[in-house]
Design a protein around this nucleic acid. Sequence first.
DNA 1: TCTGGGGTCCTAGGACCC
DNA 2: TCTGGGGTCCTAGGACCC
Length: 433
Amino acid sequence: MTAGFVLADADSFYASCERVFDPGLAGRPVVVLSNNDGCVVARSREAKNLGIQEGVPWFKLREFARMHGVTARSSNYELYASLSARMMRVMDQWLPGRVAYSIDECFLDPPARDPDRTLRLMRRAILRGVGVPVTVTMAPTRTLAKLLSRWAKRTPDAGGAAVWDDLDPMLRERILQDTPVGDIWGVGRRTAPRLTAMGLTDAMRLRDADQTAIRRRFGVNLARTVLELNGTPCVDLAGGDAVDGRREHMIVCSRMFGQPVTDLDGLRAAAGVHAQKAAVRLRRQGSLTRLVGAWAATSPYAPGYRVAGGWMRPEDPTDDPSVIARLAARILADHCPTGVRWARCAVILTDLTDRDTYRTLPGLEPRLDEGLADAIDAINCRYGSMHAGVGYAGIRGRGREDADTGASWRMRRGMLSRRATTRWDEIAVVKST
DNA sequence: TCTGGGGTCCTAGGACCC
DNA sequence: TCTGGGGTCCTAGGACCC
């Protein structure tokens, strides 16, 4: 078998998804906004060419977007998840060993022969079958495959695919040289300036840097990255395959409020909604929690930033939404003073254990009221998420978002596209004349 | 006025034990 | 005068990824 890793990474995934059911967006600048229509999280190639940066707050971009004909969309995760699943299914027909790394990206085993041709055929099948352009690369290590993917996306002549070992050695050196150190997988915004200050400005120089000095000054992770740049695979996928049903060690539900919340009722209501979303995910992966956390925070962009919260242990390990919601509400009530302009709150479930293997001494079994939680699950499974719940979590407003409770702190999503692959009433309509 | 969400691992430091 | 050493567990904070 050929050694190495194949990386398939969709191009501007969220923006590409928006185009699938709105072909009028083809060739035009498109940006997708984060929850609450807060900031830019995805940009089409045309939007990047206009100089729009990732993470720019939407309110600062709005005027510029109007002037340059940029289309903005609220993020439509239901649509993206559905198209992601389709994309993954197509890839499974081409290569074995798929490990999903994120919603738009996965690693696969290399083909037995003729890798360049296979990669290009797979790319074309995804484009035809799903409508999303994908860049497919192959290299001796995951880090090099990522680096090659970055190059291929910026090089139209590559045609969306590249195989490291097939490239001219001179070209490989140039690719390394043209990759700033901060664009290497595993080098973040903290480490990049420190490396640059040492003269390690690009991937070629980092590859040739002193291994032990890097280990000592930056830790084991960056030392591994250096090895990978040299062609020695040693980076594991941290949390890899989370998308394919692995059990998480921690479940976090956190949202900015649409408007600041200053009273305890608002905080408790939001905590209740998050607690129940977290409980759904906990139950879906068959875990129980032994430690529940909750916190609220003010806006980090306003003076006087503060975070308040804490932890509580349930009497017994639990996956009961009403128990979790009660604990979360109590934590916030105990730690968060009223009158503060809280901008966000979160519920965290951790110290998880398997539901199947959890046993205690006879006579000390947890007192779980499974009837209620199961009934809520069943209703939501049949009628859609958050149709039933404890406290505020079952109250729906007039909006169409799952989490829309009609409360003032709900998310803003003013530019949402249709969920054309998962809702009958939002299915795409094709007209012919 | 308005700035995302959800994960993982590593490391350092303190408490505690023998 | 001389004032141990090493292991484990836990937590908080930092860094990274998409």
